[in-house]
Structure formats: structure tokens, C-alpha cells
Simulated assay, not measured.
Amino acid sequence: MSEEGRFTIHLEQQEDYQILVRFDWRKAADLLMDEPPPLGETAGPNASRLLAAAAANCLSASLLYCLAKEEPPANSLRTEATCILIRNDKKRLRIGGMEVRLIVSDELAESARFNRCKELFEDFCVVSASIRDGIPIRVEVLDQRGTLLHSAD
């Protein structure tokens, strides 16, 4: 289950605000992202929705792994993620918080491991733990020749 190191995904603007995401796994389907109106047409999820989905998915997988290891029972977990959008001091839209609700089946709730796992699983979720701690992001803008036009840490 380890993914130490680095990975790169590729994004390419299609039309308007629709961006096609190509993942580094050959079997992973491409994903079309878009913005809500008035910019886009909601032809796909936007970044805020993907961030919420990523945190919820990671928490779900972490809890399932702790409870059932390699063979979690099918249809034993449902998860809801709510993203709370706010405006900062500059009136810019930001993610002010997330609420993630994991709904486990009786089979999982009655597992001998449940009491231990409910105290551990969040610490093993790469995404939610990283968001909570803050993620440094380095940003560069280059032209098509590779000339650096902008850099920010």
C-alpha cells in the first residue's frame, strides 16, 4: 500500500474551463474537470470537489484497511464529504473546512478491530493528514519553450 516518492499527473485544457486529467497509472481512466457557471458548464468536478473526494476516499480506504486488511467486505462503507466554502479577508473563495462522515456496516462496526481502528485510521490517511498540516506548494509558470515566466513557493 506504500506510495513513497513522487508521481506526476498531466492536465490539458480542452475548451473553455474543461481540463482533461491524465493519471500516471495506465489503467486509470482520464478525468474531465470543469468549473461551475458562470465560468464553466459543470461537465466534470472542479478542484474543490476533487479535494473533498480525495480526503473522503483516503479516510475510507484507511478505515477499511485497518478493519479488514486486504479483503474488506463489499458494500460495507458509505462516505459523505461536505466542503465548506468561505471568503477570506480579500474576498477570495477558500475551503474553510471539510466534514467527512463514514457510515459503516454492522459487520464493520462489530469487528474485533473496530475500537482500535477508530483511534488510528485518520493518522494513516495521507490526504486528510496533509491538508490538516498544510501542504507547501511550489508553483512555476513556463512558456512552451520552457522559459520560466513565474515562480512562487
Rank of each mutant, 00 (worst) to 15 (best):
N46R: 01
L102D: 07
L93I: 13
V141C: 00
M33V: 06
A52T: 06
A112S: 15
V21E: 04
D34Y: 06
E122H: 10
R132S: 08
H10F: 13
P36F: 01
A109R: 15
A56C: 14
G44P: 09
Q13R: 15
L51Y: 00
C83H: 02
L31G: 01
R26D: 14
L50K: 02
K91Y: 09
P37C: 04
L67T: 05
K118L: 10
A74Y: 09
R116K: 13
A55N: 08
T42F: 07
T79C: 11
F7Y: 13
F114Q: 05
D16P: 01
R116V: 10
D133Q: 15
E15K: 10
L51W: 00
C58W: 02
E70Q: 11
K91C: 08
A56R: 03
E140M: 01
P73S: 09
E99D: 13
C125A: 15
F114M: 12
I95L: 13
I9G: 01
G44S: 07
A74I: 07
Y65A: 09
L39Q: 12
D123M: 08
A29I: 03
W25E: 15
D143Y: 04
W25F: 08
E110P: 02
Y65L: 13
F124S: 14
M1F: 10
L59E: 08
L31P: 02
F23D: 07
D24A: 13
A29T: 10
I9H: 01
L32T: 10
S111T: 05
E140V: 01
S111I: 04
L32M: 14
E99G: 08
R94D: 03
L31K: 07
N46M: 04
E12T: 13
E80V: 11
C125W: 03
L108R: 05
D153Y: 00
A53K: 05
